[in-house]
C-alpha cells in the first residue's frame, strides 16, 4: 500500500463518519418521526434532529459537537500495511482536529490538560485483527454522553430480579434504558454482549453497533430478544431526548461470547441517535475500494 493513499483514505473515512449520519440511521429516525403524535414535543425534537443531520451532511460539518472518541478496527493479513494504516489514522485524526472537524476530545488524566490534537496515551483506540481477505477498516466516533450511559451487569442481580437466563438479560436491558432516560441522547441504540469477561464484553458490545439497523440477527432467539427489547423500551414513554414519546430505542443488537462458568455478564454499549460509524475495504494501493 502507498502511504499517501492510505492517509487520504483514512482522512476521508473519518471525515465522513463525523459529518454524514449513516443512511440506515436517518431512515430509522424518519420512521420514528412518522410514529410520533403530530405536534408533540417528540416530533418537534426529531424534526430538529433530522434538519440538523441534513445540514451537517450538506456542509460536511460535525453532526454533533461532541465528535467523540475514535475507535478503529482493522482487519488485515499480517504485514506492514497495518502499521501504515495505524499511522495514517493518527495523522488523519490530528489533521481533522486542526481543520475543526474533530473537537479536541483527549484529556491527559495525569495533568488534566487537553492534548489538543485527539492523540495521547492509548488514543485514538486502534485494534487490529489478523484475517485473510481484503483489508477492512471500521471507524466509530462515540460521544461521551452516551458512553457514560453504557453499563455492565453481573448476573444474578437482585435489584432487578435478573437471573442467569435471557429473561434476566431482558430485565438488564430495560433497566439500562430506564436508567439512561434521555441522557444518552435518545432515541438510542443498544450494543449488547452476553458473556465474555469484564473487558471483552464492552468491546464486543460496541462492535455490535457496526451492524446495520435493519439487519436480522442470524440467531432466532437473539433476533426475538432484540425485537422484544426495542418494542418494550419504546413502550416506556421516555421518548426522544427523554422528553416523552414513543421512540426511545432505534435498535438493539445483541451478540454472545463464551463465558467462564462462574461469570454471566451482560454488557451494554449505549449509543446516541447520532451513531457514527462507517467501514471501508481498502484496495491493494490503499485507496478506498468500497464502502461496506
Amino acid at each position: 500500500m502507498e502511504e499517501d493513499r492510505v492517509y487520504q483514505s483514512m482522512h476521508e473515512l473519518i471525515r465522513r463518519t463525523c459529518t454524514d449520519l449513516p443512511q440506515d440511521i436517518l431512515d430509522a429516525i424518519e420512521n420514528a418521526r412518522a410514529a410520533e403524535r403530530a405536534g408533540s414535543i417528540a416530533q418537534a425534537t426529531l424534526d430538529t434532529i433530522l434538519k440538523s443531520s441534513r445540514l451537517s451532511r450538506e456542509r460536511t460539518l460535525p453532526i454533533c459537537q461532541d465528535t467523540g472518541a475514535l475507535l478503529a478496527l482493522i482487519q488485515s493479513r499480517p504485514g506492514m500495511d497495518v502499521v501504515l494504516i495505524e499511522e495514517a489514522i493518527r495523522k488523519a485524526v490530528r489533521a481533522l482536529t486542526a481543520e475543526g472537524i474533530l473537537r479536541q476530545n483527549c484529556v491527559d488524566p495525569l495533568t488534566d490538560r487537553n492534548t489538543g490534537d485527539n492523540t495521547g496515551q492509548g488514543a485514538p483506540q486502534i485494534h487490529c485483527e489478523l484475517a485473510d481477505g481484503p483489508t477492512v477498516v471500521r471507524v466509530m466516533l462515540k460521544g461521551g454522553g452516551s458512553e457514560n450511559m453504557s453499563t455492565q451487569y453481573s448476573l444474578p442481580m437482585a435489584r432487578i430480579q435478573a437471573g442467569r437466563d435471557f429473561e434476566g438479560v431482558r430485565r438488564c436491558l430495560l433497566d439500562a434504558v430506564h436508567q439512561a432516560q434521555g441522557q444518552g441522547c435518545a432515541p438510542g441504540i443498544l450494543g449488547v454482549c452476553i458473556g465474555g469477561d469484564r473487558a471483552s464484553g464492552y468491546l464486543e458490545a460496541k462492535r455490535q453497533l457496526f451492524r446495520r439497523l435493519d439487519d436480522v440477527n442470524p440467531s432466532p432467539v437473539l433476533a426475538l430478544l432484540e425485537q422484544t427489547v426495542v418494542a418494550q423500551a419504546n413502550s416506556l414513554g421516555i421518548g426522544p431526548m427523554g422528553l416523552g414519546g414513543r421512540t426511545t430505542l432505534l435498535g438493539c443488537k445483541i451478540c454472545v461470547a463464551g463465558r467462564h462458568p462462574a461469570c454471566f455478564f451482560v454488557t451494554v454499549s449505549y449509543s446516541c441517535w447520532a451513531t457514527r460509524r462507517y467501514q471501508v475495504e481498502l484496495d491493494t494501493t490503499g485507496g478506498i475500494g468500497a464502502w461496506i
Binding site: L174, Q181, G244
Partner: peptide, 25 residues
C-alpha cells in the same frame, strides 16, 4: 418534565417486567 417522564417510565418499566421473555433459554 424530566422527573415526570422518569416517574411515568418507571410505571412502564414495572409493567414490562411483568411480561417475561417468551423466547426461553
Amino acid at each position: 418534565l424530566h422527573e415526570r417522564v422518569r416517574e411515568e417510565s418507571l410505571a412502564g418499566l414495572n409493567a414490562a417486567y411483568g411480561a417475561p421473555f417468551t423466547g426461553g433459554h
